[in-house]
């Protein structure tokens, strides 16, 4: 626009940022594909069954036969992690799906509905956001009981207002955007410009937030399982593995450390994917 901004542009060319985000996007997409493969075909990746006890080899440290060592019952930690992805990752995905669907419905209702509906929904999200997510999830679990599904519901419910806010804000911004106005000026009927401009432009940021949110939902699910509110011990869920491993922390660090590392990796993948999607949509 002005000479000043133009000069700042030369100081920081944008293709650099874009190229970086393209690489990150490629890497994180690849990682997502790998995780999906783990979910669908754990047997291909895991050298052992997740529940095979081996009393001869309890507490063996990471080696070439047991990449990540064995636990107190001689079960292979790596194999358990691979099979456990089904529980941990799926719980996070389901939680995010619940939050996205409920949040989008609430947000769209607020944006499109009457002023009263908007005010009501927005005040409700204010209240909702006043509760820390973990504590709200704990309240939901206290009400509906423990277990994997319950954890997914609890985390999903706690995250709803964030999506609701985003969707409402986006929907309002996009309906006021000049490009929607431009469509209106051309005589495009309302249903068509909603389909063509509003929904895709509202959906983009939701995908970004969902990608970022899946990671923290997975971490939160593991945390709740660690508290003993999720599936019960023989299950190779990562939080359960953490809780079990913590008992033996003094002499076998690997039992608790690797499930946590798995969570970190998944969270990193989901944030990197979200961020590179965001960077791409900005430019």
């Amino acid at each position: 626009m002005s000479a000043t901004t133009a000069a700042f542009d030369t100081a920081r060319p944008r293709w650099r940022a874009t190229r970086g985000s393209h690489i990150l996007l490629a890497i994180s997409t690849l990682a997502v594909a790998l995780i999906v493969a783990l979910l669908l075909f754990p047997g291909v990746f895991a050298p052992y069954a997740p529940d095979t006890n081996d009393v001869q080899h309890t507490f063996s440290p990471p080696s070439s036969t047991h990449y990540l060592g064995t636990d107190q019952l001689g079960r292979d930690v790596f194999s358990r992690l691979v099979y456990g992805a089904r529980y941990s990752v799926t719980t996070g995905l389901v939680a995010t799906a619940i939050a996205v669907v409920a949040g989008s419905l609430a947000g769209l209702t607020a944006a499109a509905g009457s002023r009263l509906a908007d005010a009501l929904i927005m005040r409700l999200t204010d209240v909702w956001m006043a509760f820390p997510e973990v504590l709200l999830a704990l309240l939901v679990i206290a009400l509906i009981g423990t277990g994997s599904t319950q954890i997914a519901v609890a985390i999903g419910v706690a995250a709803v207002p964030y999506y609701g806010r985003l969707v409402r804000g986006q929907a309002l911004a996009v309906t006021k955007a000049e490009y929607v106005e431009a469509a209106k000026i051309l005589g495009v009927p309302a249903w068509r410009y909603v389909l063509r401009h509003v929904l895709p432009n509202v959906g983009g940021p939701v995908v970004v937030l969902a990608s970022l949110g899946t990671g923290s939902a997975i971490a939160a699910a593991a945390g709740l399982s660690l508290l003993g509110l999720g599936p019960l011990p023989p299950t190779p869920e990562w939080g359960v593995m953490l809780a079990e491993g913590q008992t033996y922390l003094a002499n076998a660090w690997w039992i608790a450390v690797f499930p946590g590392l798995a969570i970190v990796v998944v969270v990193l993948v989901s944030t990197t994917l979200g961020r590179s999607l965001q960077a791409r949509s900005l430019r």
Binding site: G215, A219, A222, G223, L226, L242, G245, Q246, L249, W253, A256, V257, G260, I263, V264, V267, L268, T271, T272
Partner: peptide, 18 residues
């Protein structure tokens, strides 16, 4: 920073303990 954000506090606690 990205790493620090991705680490869940409960696991960081286990690491620090260990």
């Amino acid at each position: 920073e990205v790493l620090a954000v991705a680490v869940p506090p409960f696991w960081l606690g286990i690491l620090l303990l260990s």
